[in-house]
């Protein structure tokens, strides 16, 4: 059964249509990469999936139930969202920020601190844990926010349905932290969490996602495996660029060469 399903969903929050007839399904454990040029509607789709805006037409279901039927607390146990930017300007420590991810759960302090330890490790923030969030660099802040949303969905027993939504999770990260974070996302997915993430790095998407969906002026290409979706024709049509598609020398995924 699909964990997330969209059937000809349209979105027009201020009258003009931002997304038209989007349909796809996502099963537990799948990682979907969301790609597309600027203004194609990637963040709008993410806002739709997290319930911040509702579809003007079509049906959107999470765990087999219409999204609008989910109560706010119940949805927070099933779904975590990493926004593109964070406006936190109060001097929380790193630990306090990550523990906020446990807000919707009533799992107890000792369990929460165990999850804190695991997510600190998964995002390489162990040494930052007593530092003030406001004094961190951009990349460090991004890793802390990632640890917070990981903590929200870390335990499989907290919810039958788990969906992680990430808006450009690696935009401020160096190469080794990109890999670290993507591996942590992969581990969560292996334990049954579905993941939708907006990415700009095509090769990162090719390597770490099961499915890719390319948005183009409200319409869609895919979803399909990166190997199926990444074609020179698609790049010409959507991004208006000429690229060559190669193969990774050691593994079975495409490489986009500009």
């Amino acid at each position: 059964m699909s964990l997330l399903s969209l059937d000809s969903v349209c979105v027009s929050p201020w009258g003009s249509e931002l997304l038209a007839n989007i349909s796809f399904e996502l099963r537990a454990g799948e990682v979907l990469g969301l790609l597309g040029p600027n203004g194609a509607g990637k963040t709008t789709l993410l806002n739709l999936l997290c319930g911040a805006i509702s579809p003007s037409a079509g049906s959107l279901q999470l765990g087999g139930r219409p999204m609008a039927e989910w109560r706010i607390r119940e949805r927070a146990r099933a779904q975590a969202v990493l926004p593109q930017q964070s406006s936190l300007n109060f001097p929380y420590t790193v630990e306090e920020v990550i523990l906020l991810g446990r807000t919707p759960h009533a799992s107890g302090a000792s369990c929460d601190r165990e999850i804190l330890g695991a997510t600190l490790e998964a995002t390489d923030t162990v040494e930052l844990r007593h530092r003030l969030y406001t004094q961190l660099s951009g990349g460090e802040k991004q890793r802390v926010q990632l640890a917070r949303v990981f903590a929200q969905l870390w335990r499989p027993q907290d919810s039958d349905v788990r969906l992680l939504l990430l808006d450009e999770p690696t935009s401020a990260l160096d190469l080794s932290h990109q890999q670290l974070v993507m591996n942590a996302v992969g581990t969560l997915a292996e334990q049954g969490c579905a993941v939708v993430m907006v990415l700009h790095d095509l090769n990162l998407a090719a390597r770490y996602t099961d499915l890719c969906l390319v948005l183009d002026r409200g319409g869609q290409h895919g979803p399909g495996t990166p190997g199926d979706v990444f074609t020179p024709e698609m790049f010409r049509e959507v991004f208006d660029v000429e690229v060559k598609i190669g193969r990774h020398p050691d593994a079975d995924f495409p490489l986009v060469i500009q």
């Binding site: 997290c50 911040a52 706010i72 607390r73 119940e74 949805r75 927070a76 146990r77 779904q79 975590a80 969202v81 926004p83 964070s86 406006s87 936190l88 109060f90 929380y92 920020v97 906020l100 991810g101 807000t103 919707p104 929200q152």
Partner: peptide, 17 residues
């Protein structure tokens, strides 16, 4: 209030009405 310091939409995603 703790969750709302992160931002209003973040607080909503943490289950706060």
């Amino acid at each position: 209030l703790n969750a709302m310091l992160l931002g209003e939409s973040e607080a909503r995603h943490l289950g706060i009405d």
